[in-house]
Write a protein that binds this DNA or RNA. Structure first.
Lengths: 335, 335
DNA sequence: CATTTTTACGAAAACGTTTACGTTAAAGAG
DNA sequence: CTCTTTAACGTAAACGTTTTCGTAAAAATG
């Protein structure tokens, strides 16, 4: 059997209390006994049982992270950031793939509650009343990552989507483009859908360009697959377009593939700017100019905030993290 | 405070033993009391404490997964598969990003041990003696994913790398190519490095083509970044090459970028085949022909085997999973 | 109806820790 | 040298479950 604190105590001829004190380096023992205990621990290969600790301390040193899709490049960058901080601060991370399903989400929330995780991070998912009720009852700190909630007072970490979209489109305008199309994600998405088209519209407006519905196309998601054929459709609606703002890198790459099929040269005949700065954006041919969200840093910051709340017991302020444009090869000045 | 089993017992006027029995649907209670207890559970919003359960059952319903890089597309596909099975079978997944660092790996192993996870999955990492000692002492089931161990008797799930490379190169040969280059990963990698160049060599040999060192280039890793400039180097060594086998999709895409820079048209002037079938391979321009590893399925299978070992307590057989070629647009017949 | 079997429970120990409290001996103060 | 303080421990309760064992009542058996 794996040795317990009792075995250590017996071997070192002290009480378990003393062993515990040494383990948690509190005070109340002499140097000699400490050495004896350390020795015994080594000899036995003793490792404290975190479960027993968790039971009494009411802390599990574990964080639960909810993703609509664990395997997306978007999620995995965030995950890496979270994991990094969690690890350095002595916490573990359990990942949950909700598949955007209410049933799964609810199940996971229950599991995380039963396992008494110390905190929860939601990513890219809107918090419904049902979810909020559950997490409220759980009484653990929560932070929202790459999403936010208007209805519920939960701290979040994200970029300003509208502003970011505005920046991306302004960039295109500064490059001389006036006929700018947009490939949007689902418009009913309050977080990543609508705000980005609003930013698009505002940028146009502020530069004296009137918005034209024909220059906008709406997809059912932000993925490569949901973007197939969208550029063709857009160009069919309005062939004057010289530049396109895609609401995600995957949509942008999808558009590039589409352009390639149609024999349209990027960026000579058409400029494209993406959104996210995933790894594929570097890897695209040519490399994709895009509006970068600092995903890895967002993950880190989210985890830091969560752990802050845990330590201090206080609420924490939301953070709008800075976005920026990374210029690569898919946008060309229009003369 | 969150209610405990005691609260439920009190409210339902029974002992905690009875509540426990009902919770675990064992027998030893009447229908009436069951109803009363269920009622009390609902009223109180009681949720069992998995930590307390874990302490006594010595099962945590948690699996630990070790990745050299959680955020790679490779890892995340596997993770998704593992997570899927774990979830349906009532287990949670804690992810560990080892960064291929011995220190981090050792630390993680310790943490997983202290947290008493029920099983461990190693991915794409070679098992050293040190690691093996630790996991042996932990006394939990382990499975290896996308790696294997010659020295230690650990079950694994992977494709036959040599055979897979052989298949990829044979495919190129069947398409009429005879001057076939290879962009390899690190040759000292016993799992994903050497075997693949061996497969490459064997395919050449069996088709009466003599291996030429000038047609091989070795990188320091399997990533996009480690592949930059490698195609140029290869072509400088031997300009007769008409097709290239890259030891990973990222290396292949890297080569495509490199070809693009040099003005070499893929596939008209140069054919390229990758290895992995990551999401980028579909998204590449043109879409990348590649040797597919069923990553998601491997993840699922790995988790299934692990849970099998857990349930039966018996060792389990390793699995060589089938690979196949997915034909897209980067390989053209050579006339 | 008497006896045996079954059912429906409850009491208490156990899992491996942490910690409040008590006790003894050593050290310091006068 | 006596009294007080401090250091160095040990004892036992507590955390929230599961499970063994015991017991009383109900049901089945003859």
């Amino acid at each position: 059997m794996t040795p317990t604190i009792k075995d250590v105590a017996k071997k070192a001829n002290v009480s378990i209390a003393t062993v515990s004190r040494i383990l948690n380096n509190q005070q109340g023992y002499s140097l000699k006994t400490k050495e004896r205990v350390i020795e015994a621990i080594k000899d036995l290969g003793y490792q404290p049982n975190a479960i027993a600790r968790g039971l009494i301390n009411k802390r599990t040193q574990t964080l639960g992270i909810l993703f609509p899709d664990v395997s997306s490049m978007f999620s995995s960058d965030i995950l890496k950031g979270i994991e990094e901080i969690a690890h350095t601060k002595g916490h573990s991370v359990v990942v949950c793939h909700t598949d955007s399903s209410k049933k799964r989400m609810t199940k996971y929330l229950q599991v995380l509650n039963e396992k008494r995780v110390d905190g929860i991070i939601f990513t890219s998912e809107v918090i419904t009343e049902d979810y909020y009720k559950i997490i409220e009852e759980m009484d653990v700190p929560v932070v929202l990552l790459a999403t936010q909630s208007y209805r519920f007072p939960l701290p979040y970490v994200k970029v300003d989507d509208k502003h970011a979209a505005y920046s991306a489109v302004s960039y295109l305008i500064e490059k001389g483009h006036r006929n700018i199309g947009m490939i949007s994600g689902p418009i009913e998405d309050e977080i990543a859908g609508r705000p980005r088209v609003e930013g698009y519209k505002q940028a146009l407006e502020e530069h004296g360009i009137t918005f034209d519905e024909k220059k906008l196309v709406i997809t059912s998601g932000f993925y490569y697959e949901t973007g197939t054929g969208m550029l063709s459709r857009l160009l069919k609606q309005d062939e004057s377009i010289t530049a396109v703002f895609a609401a995600s890198d995957e949509l942008a790459v999808s558009a590039m593939s589409n352009a390639f099929e149609m024999g349209i040269h990027v960026p000579n005949e058409l400029s494209i700017i993406g959104y996210d700065n995933l790894k594929i954006s570097q890897m695209a041919i040519p490399p994709l100019t895009t509006l970068a969200q600092p995903l890895y840093e967002m993950g880190k910051l989210g985890a830091e905030l969560l752990l802050d709340m845990l330590e201090t017991g206080k609420a924490v302020e939301s953070r709008i993290v800075p976005h920026h444009i990374v210029e690569r090869k898919t946008v060309k000045a229009y003369e």
